[in-house]
Simulated scan of single mutants.
Amino acid sequence: MPVDLRGRSVLTLDELTAEEIHYLLRLVADLKKKKRTGTELKQLSTKNIALLCERDSIHARAAFEVAAHDQGANVTLIGPSTGHTRYRDSVKDTARFLGRLYDAIGYIGHSQSAVEEVARWARVPVYNGMTDESHPTQTLADLVTMQQSSEKPLDDMIVAFLGDGRSNVARSLAVASSKLGIDLRIISPPSFWPEAPFVERVTSVARDSGGQITVLEHVGTGILGADFICTAPWFTEGDVRWAERVRQLAPFAIRENAMEATDNPHTKLMHSLPAWHWREDEAGARIAKRFGVECMEVCDGVFESKSSIVFDQAENRMPAIKALLVATLVS
């Protein structure tokens, strides 16, 4: 049966089947190739898209804006910098108003319940550009990057995620991996493991797809054979108790010895950005002095190495979002 995503919102990857995810990945690759060769058609020239930003993210915002403009759509940024604030309008009222004017809404914020409420009341496609719970556009970009960086099919890949296993990146990667047959290892301190019901759910889905989702604490066991080692920011806006988070997560920073310990000479580094990797800048020096660590998340030597595909990954956020726009808005 042909895949048809027209008129659909994408708030998490839970809402998509494996076939729909594979369809989007093929569309991402196709749109990326057409832009590179100058053969891309503007299929959204009559569309208006609202980008509702309730948090700062240069990566999400830039990717949405370029994706829409490439396809000929008009984009309106709406957020605190443009005078929009939750204190003046409820989510429900904002969604009902924007849905009358715009053909689609991109949401970048903290609350998963907020983006779900936008989708409930807007009556136009809504895309989750990022919430604290889910990051579907990042994961689509990650999957495309893996495909472009390995000769293996996705269902033959071993992916290790180090760091905060409860993060939006880790959770979305687990959902996608469970559907696509990927062997994913989430390697975190136990206090940063995803909640048990979530792990049980993705593990059950993985059994049906031939994949495997493992949550563990031992880095050496988790990274052995990994084709990709992934991580994500340790901190988001509003996080507290930094010292305790650094203390627990420090052993899970990606250093040169971790890349070597995979016993796979082709292991690649992935990071969803922004990354704390350079202690010589002002913020890095302050953190190194305060917490006594030489690196957080990933060391500069690994981040800048030939094994790093971080910026290929970051670039792919744009065609990933473009694929969602085209798949859901083109008649």
Score class of each variant (00 low, 15 high):
Leu24Phe: 07
Leu140Glu: 02
Ala68His: 11
Ala119Asn: 08
Val75Glu: 07
Tyr23Met: 03
Asn48Glu: 12
Arg120Gly: 00
Ala119Lys: 03
Ala63Gln: 01
Asp56Trp: 04
Pro153Cys: 15
Pro136Phe: 04
Leu51Met: 11
Leu24Gly: 14
Ile49Ser: 15
Ile78Asn: 05
His110Pro: 04
Gln138Met: 07
Leu44Gly: 14
Ile78Ser: 01
Val115Leu: 12
Ser45Pro: 06
Leu25Tyr: 05
Asp30Val: 11
Gln112Phe: 01
Thr139Leu: 02
Arg96Lys: 09
Ala141Arg: 15
Ile49Lys: 11
Ser111Lys: 00
Thr82Phe: 06
Arg55Ser: 11
His69Phe: 13
Arg26Ser: 14
Thr85Leu: 03
Gln148Ser: 10
Leu52Thr: 04
Leu101Ile: 03
Ser134Gln: 06
Ile49Leu: 15
Asp89Glu: 14
Ala62Arg: 12
Tyr23Leu: 14
Arg88Asp: 02
Gly38Trp: 10
His59Asp: 08
Pro136Met: 08
Glu133Thr: 15
His135Arg: 11
Gly99Asp: 02
Gln43Tyr: 07
Leu51Gly: 04
Asn74Tyr: 12
Ser57Leu: 13
Gly38Met: 12
Glu117Thr: 02
Ala68Lys: 12
Leu51Val: 05
Asp56Thr: 08
His84Glu: 06
Gly109Lys: 05
His22Ile: 07
Lys42Arg: 15
Asp142Cys: 14
Ala141Phe: 00
Lys33Glu: 07
Met130Ile: 01
Glu40Met: 15
Arg123Pro: 04
Leu24His: 06
Gly83Asp: 02
Pro153Leu: 06
Lys33Gln: 13
Leu143Asn: 09
Ser150Arg: 00
Asp132Met: 05
Lys34Phe: 10
Tyr102Val: 01
His110Leu: 01
Leu140Gly: 10
Cys53Leu: 13
Thr82Glu: 06
Gln148Cys: 05
Trp121Asn: 11
Asn48Arg: 07
Val115Phe: 07
Gly106His: 00
Ala95Gln: 15
Lys92Phe: 00
Ile105Gly: 08
Glu65Asp: 10
Arg123Lys: 15
Ile105Phe: 03
Glu40Cys: 05
Asp103Gln: 05
Thr137Trp: 05
Trp121Leu: 01
Asn74Gly: 14
Ser81Leu: 01
Ser45Tyr: 15
